[in-house]
Nucleic acid binder design. Structure first.
Lengths: 341, 341
DNA sequence: TGTGTTCTCGTAAACGTTTACGGAAAAACG
DNA sequence: CGTTTTTCCGTAAACGTTTACGAGAACACA
């Protein structure tokens, strides 16, 4: 059905070697024959067989994105990633790479799936999301010498991999600054209990900003729970029971904020009136919730594009003339002021 | 690095042919040698090279999911698909298949990308979503003889492909029934203007139910717009300007409903009080919107699993002993009663 | 013992590429 | 014209599998 390089060669009465060289733009082929080959390729509707190329070159021409729902993630989890994936795939496609997604059941750490991808060489590189503070996946990949990049930072590994992260520290600080400027002094923070790295970064920014404003950090105002609605619902009352309850709460996650608001409502506390509420990572839910939640928004699709570029730049086969480079970037989150603070 | 079938053969002092046969569970190999091969495979950490298998077998062991954002889709579009993808990928992984996702820019009909996937044989089969009433992708795939399945039905093609769809017709009728039972007689319908098939099915159910209740279908109460928030915002006022305005509106899409509610709010009309609002396909946005929107919910993750199964059943290489079967199913949507009607 | 059958395994080709190597022809140079 | 260099192309091996074919050994049976 599909025509092969042999068909082209037979059709033009030249050898398959020449056809291949012409197709791959090598120098040692006559400009004229190259033209003829390219033309024949078009008319015969030729497109190279990926398996053949992969086998010969030892490369699969595909990147695996490991999407790892965390424990307690609810039915519609991870809408966060769709625009990111769109950007990612667009950029990868430009370089002729496929994007294969590997998901797991919520709570599954995916170590096993990751090993399978690596050992069967089903992808040329791997993309990790939801990086943890200590991330065994990163340790494994560096130790195995397998190329990868991460969405998010981690303390693991030798930092010799590309990574793109959001500046949760600055967002945490900005959130505090804004609330302080609006007269708040008792500001609570609700973050995920897992060792997801962005939770640490957020908290660091939160602490730093409070101190900068001469406000003592009150441990009673910091709570952590499962990173879902139930988690927010469960731990928000904790900070409200503190000796000096907060007048503002910063949630590190939209789902936790939603659960938190539910808990507040049950206590007769109205976000936006009796309590200022800020969310660090904006999602459509923040926008449509009532009251609309003030949140910090990431540029997801550009991030996907950029991370693809950074990953490619680190791969010898795709790096530019200066050779492979390791790029690490931290992107800002943009404040979207709404009605909840 | 990774050990090959040759390594196993050398290690055991047998031929690679025997190793391969042992690994693939063929009958013509001594039970004892099979044991030894399997054991060696484990200790040498062997896993087959996919490119090699693919090249030899002419199969890629991967399925392509074509995710096609429609025109005007906004930043966070398609959260709908994540749980579906989770189910899909889980089932495919069970059969050793990869899931590669192919996306496009919103508005791109993907015909070109689809052709590339098919012609380069980058996948063994293709999965289509957002099927249209007349779908050129389906025509192309049937004509090319390429295996595929669809999420959603279509009038195109010879129906000789597996498909899984939601019963939008029944959901439309159920929505009407419920509203009529609550005393409404003037019920509007807002649907997408594109020829997305679920829009037609929904409208058919809506019409049928109205007639069953002896209510005349008023064309002024039917509007169609872009399938996003702006679309809902734009066309909802149309039905409100009709000579006899509705007391209830059924939206065929969550984003359109959100835009519609915004338009209503600007007219001083409160959903849940002055106007009953129902949404056909539930998303988290419906749940968190204020008022929480009554909606019809699909079982997305099971659908993903099931469609994967149906696709596999249609592929000779994966079909059971009875040979390949074409299965077509229509799944119900479940009413989730909330505050908006 | 001779013949036929069954088990088990080795051999080698094939899938579609890429690429190292070498050689013929053409061009350059003295 | 002879030699060297350059240009261009064909040959063939290799990537890691699967599988058709055939052959040797063991076994059964008369």
């Amino acid at each position: 059905m599909a025509s092969s390089i042999h068909d082209l060669a037979r059709h033009l009465n030249i050898s398959i070697g020449t056809v291949s060289r012409a197709l791959n733009g090598r120098a040692d082929v006559n400009a004229d024959t190259r033209q003829r080959v390219l033309e024949a390729a078009r008319t015969l509707n030729y497109s190279p067989n990926q398996s053949g190329r992969s086998l010969r070159q030892g490369a699969t021409h595909s990147i695996a994105f490991m999407l790892q729902p965390h424990p307690g993630d609810q039915q519609y989890g991870e809408p966060f990633f769709i625009p990111f994936l769109i950007g990612l795939q667009a950029r990868l496609a430009e370089s002729g790479l496929d994007l294969t997604v590997v998901m797991g059941a919520p709570g599954d750490y995916q170590q096993e799936r990751l090993r399978r991808v690596v050992e069967t060489r089903r992808a040329d590189a791997v993309l990790l999301a939801w990086t943890r503070r200590e991330d065994e996946r990163i340790d494994y990949l560096t130790q195995a010498g397998f190329p990868f990049a991460t969405l998010g930072r981690s303390r693991s590994g030798t930092k010799s991999y590309p990574s793109l992260d959001l500046d949760f520290e600055k967002a945490g600080a900005d959130a505090v600054d804004r609330l302080v400027a609006r007269g708040h002094r008792r500001i609570a923070a609700v973050r995920p209990s897992l060792d997801l790295n962005f939770g640490y970064l957020f908290l660091a920014g939160y602490r730093k900003a409070l101190r900068r404003h001469g406000i003592e950090v009150d441990p009673e105002l910091i709570a952590s729970g499962f990173i879902n609605e139930a988690g927010g619902y469960e731990v928000t009352p904790q900070v409200m029971r503190s000796k000096a309850p907060p007048t503002a709460i910063i949630f590190n996650n939209d789902a936790m904020a939603l659960g938190g608001c539910k808990a507040l409502a049950e206590m007769g506390i109205r976000p936006g009136h009796d309590m200022a509420v800020t969310v660090i990572v904006d999602t459509p839910l923040c926008r449509y919730f009532s009251p609309a939640l003030t949140a910090f928004r990431p540029a997801l699709e550009p991030m996907g594009q950029r991370l693809a570029e950074m990953l490619l730049a680190s791969l010898p086969a795709f790096a530019g003339p200066e050779g492979p480079r390791i790029i690490r970037e931290v992107w800002p989150l943009e404040l979207v002021a709404r009605d909840s603070d």
